[in-house]
Design a protein around this nucleic acid. Structure first.
Lengths: 131, 131
DNA sequence: CTAAAACCTCACGTTGACGTGAGGGTCAAG
DNA sequence: CTTGACCCTCACGTCAACGTGAGGTTTTAG
């Protein structure tokens, strides 16, 4: 399939796909005239990239995980990197869960002592800021 | 305390503190000569900012949460924003947990069919990439 | 055969959270 | 009263993951 179709099916922009290629994440075939052609599986691969990007991984990290993604045989080194990234992500999730609880504390605190103000309440934009 | 001490105690750069001020997150007092002075509590506040930034919140979002952080009375609108951010974060954590499991799948798959290669194994940098 | 749609390669623009000097005041120590 | 450690305000640089034309070729529909 050509780049436009892949973009639509994977839910990314054409520019993004060219960028991924630039980063070494994709290596599409080319027609004699130079147009890129991708295999069917690439749709899912690109979706996975999106997940990884959303999780905060960089192009470099994703590139490092590629051999594992592509059904290729993997070296011990590659599997170690895979685990390293996993641990990094795991740590981030823990951190964010912590922050989430922190936010919950703030919420209950605000609800508890919060103003009697309702949705349509008058002005009370007390914007006191930490010194 | 002055900016250098705050920076060290909160674990951020001096530049970052000035930046936070630029973004409306901090409003330190000034000595007659113009130097910033912060209260003790600011150390913890800045650490909280770091947590929020690490969780992917923007300066704008953090600024929106400020009234709730500063012990100030909060309006219903502010509390709604607080909950909105909480939900956003919660969604992101869920997403990342998903991605984490995806990575775990990749790991077990790689371990299972992975090469018999050991740490000091020979060359096998099969870098096949999705077409 | 032609015109629109899709593709190509540069290559500069954008956004956020700072980094990094430039050039110049301020403050505790000796 | 000077020196060095900090502080100040501009203001440009950085990095990642794309966005956005410019200018030109190729493919496809009628």
């Amino acid at each position: 399939m050509k780049i436009g179709e892949l973009a639509q099916r994977a839910g990314v922009s054409v520019r993004a796909l060219r960028y991924y290629e630039e980063q070494g994440l994709l290596s599409p075939e080319r027609t004699p005239s130079g147009q890129r052609t991708y295999g069917e599986g690439t749709v899912e691969v690109v979706r996975l990239f999106q997940q990884f990007y959303a999780a905060g991984l960089s192009s470099r990290s994703i590139a490092a995980l590629l051999p594992c993604v592509n059904n290729g045989r993997t070296t011990a080194t590659q599997r170690r990197m895979l685990r390293t990234e996993r641990d990094r992500l795991s740590d981030r999730v823990e951190e964010m869960t912590h922050t989430l609880h922190r936010l919950d504390q703030l919420i209950t605190a605000a609800d508890h002592r919060g103003g009697t103000t309702l949705s349509h309440a008058p002005m009370d934009e007390t914007t006191t800021v930490a010194s």
